[in-house]
Amino acid sequence: MTARTAPAKPLRVRPSGTARRPWKYRTPLIALADLVVFVALWHVAVVELELVNRVFFPSPGDVAGSLATLISSGELAGHLGTSARSWLIGYGLGAAAGVVTGLATGSLPWANRLLMPLLWSLWATPLIALQPTLTAWLDYGDGPIVVLVFLSTMIPVALNTATGAAQTSPSLIRAARVFGAGRMAVYLKIRLPWAVPYVIGGLRLAVPTSMIGLLVGEMVGSPSGVGSIIVNATARFRTGEAFAAIGVYVVLSVVLVRLLDLAERRAGGWRNHA
């Protein structure tokens, strides 16, 4: 707020805690208005003004129609099932492997020295470049996709968990020791719960990266999955269908990130009281 006041005027400094609270529904309403304006402009540009060729760029109505067809024909359900299975297997295994690696890396100094640099460098790497090699190794289909999703989930989860485990309050660990906790109990009852918010943060970071892995795998080397709808529909100039499939991915990604945001907020609270 202070940034807006001109220097000539007296400084307006609110005492802390008295900042003007915006109306509760302001943000969702503006977002909704955004969406309506966006769709309206899109419709007018394509249908009324005919700024683009509708074969190449569908109108919102075309996309909705294609989505309805994809749903009613059962095509979407089939592809979505394939995508969901690949993603869940890869993401689940990746999360589990990431938590274990992260806990070890964060709490054992030698594992930290050995693994952290490798994990960091893999995090910087475009893992999807492995896709063609994975396809050569595992054949077309779900195999390379699951591996890509696994890798792109495991690395951020491991890095975040390691950060959390390394920052575990030493006094909590000492207290547990005093009460007779063994090594395993310290892991399970102190380090793991302490790292939970970090794990969730890593899972959240892994949503976009795992989605990229899933999509690239499906677009480049798979006959099924929502990503393959995008490629096949585009090749047949059915852009409405491609947009509908992209829309499905957009909704999925946004919902997943939101869910994990919510979980992060829930899980993080207790640490402030510890």
């Binding site: 990229i212 690239v216 490629v231 957009v250 990604s253």
Partner: peptide, 9 residues
Amino acid sequence: AMPRIAFQP
């Protein structure tokens, strides 16, 4: 949040 890579085709 969305996978923008989906637009590549």
